[in-house]
């Protein structure tokens, strides 16, 4: 009972680990930059001092830092969303991609790219708006259909319809790809996932969305615990089941939609990070969600570092790296957790 949430010290350790990862990831890249120059460039970036012109160290504040930050924020958002969905649906297979939400977001982005949609009155890109909108619409469609088929909105129905919906959307995206000529490269970019074009605008957007919707999810840790124990049970102990469920789904759609709009679809992070973290922290969401937040951020930043540095100057798609590393890491943690139990 006393161990409900983390102490301040644990949070300081989490934050320190994240800062160290940010530093390591900005210091390493395809263009070698001496360490003192890296540190100077970072200090200049943080203090808003002018960077020395003509220096290769300018890569750090202009390209690497926003990319690393975007990767970290997307990792945090995806794993937080996956964690919440796995708790809500009491199913360890749930995440943004199994529920068809990220496929829907991709379709939104693809439509925006194909038709060149922009919303001049809003400060964010057309792809971002369309991806978020479609993420939410997908969720409404999946839940609406699930409700139509099975009024109790049972977990299995939601997951089954989500998977089928995801396949349908993938087929529609393929049709767009077949007919696209000029925008083909851009569309493929969305479906493979990359942080190569991430800028400070993306960082700002992700920060705001994480603050609002991620914060909301964190505040619902008791409700998520109740759902993870069982939905009927949640209702009996006094959780407003329908309202909380809707709130959690909206939050996850916003997090997944924004992430997809920034980086395209990235497999595995939302599904596996919560698993790995749960094996270490246990299923209590007061501990699980903050750990997922930091764990997802660190995992994604390191994966992106590998994606751009292993075969440099050629870049690997980020999804390839997250799947390779994630699968290996998951098997290792799963096996060692089993060993402890026996």
């Amino acid at each position: 009972m006393k161990l409900r949430s983390y102490s301040t010290l644990t949070y300081i350790l989490f934050a320190a680990a994240t800062l160290v990862t940010i530093f390591v990831c900005t210091a390493i890249g395809s263009v070698p930059i001496p360490l003192p120059d890296t540190i100077q460039a970072l200090i200049n970036a943080v203090t808003a001092a002018p960077q020395s012109p003509e220096s290769t160290a300018n890569i750090i504040p202009e390209i690497r830092l926003p990319r690393v930050l975007a990767a970290g924020l997307v990792g945090a958002a995806l794993s937080l969303a996956g964690c919440a969905l796995q708790g809500l649906l009491k199913n360890p297979l749930a995440d943004g991609s199994t529920l068809g939400v990220s496929a829907g977001a991709s379709l939104g982005a693809v439509i925006a790219i194909t038709f060149g949609l922009t919303f001049t009155m809003l400060p964010v890109a057309g792809t971002t708006i369309m991806a978020s909108l479609f993420a939410f619409l997908s969720l409404v469609a999946i839940l609406g259909l699930a409700y139509k088929l099975d009024h109790s909105l049972s977990t299995n129905t939601i997951i089954l319809i989500g998977i089928i919906f995801g396949m349908l959307i993938s087929a529609v995206i393929s049709i767009f790809i077949v007919f696209a000529t000029d925008q083909l490269r851009q569309i493929v970019y969305w479906t493979m996932g990359s942080f190569a074009n991430s800028g400070y605008q993306d960082v700002l957007l992700l920060s705001v969305v994480l603050l609002v919707f991620g914060g909301l999810l964190l505040s619902l840790h008791r409700e998520l615990n109740a759902f993870a124990i069982g939905e009927d049970n949640a209702q009996h102990i006094g959780v407003n089941v329908k309202r909380v469920k809707l709130l959690i789904l909206v939050c996850t759609a916003a997090l997944v939609g924004t992430s997809v709009s920034v980086s395209g679809t990235i497999a595995f992070v939302g599904l596996v990070t919560p698993h790995m973290v749960r094996l270490i922290t246990g299923p209590n969401h007061a501990r699980l969600m903050p750990a997922c937040f930091f764990g997802g951020a660190i995992f994604m930043m390191l994966c992106d570092l590998l994606a751009r540095s292993v075969f440099s100057p050629r870049e690997l798609p980020i999804g390839v790296v997250t799947s390779l590393i994630g699968a290996a890491l998951f098997i290792y943690i799963f096996a060692s957790a089993r060993k402890v139990k026996q």
Binding site: G87, K90, R222, A228, I229, N233, H236, I237, P283, N284
Partner: peptide, 25 residues
Amino acid sequence: GMLMQNHFVSYAFTVQEVVSSGRYA
């Protein structure tokens, strides 16, 4: 308060955590 006939659990909550959740209201 309601005690159901069957219980299906999927996550490794402790006994203490499940009992404590009864105080949610």
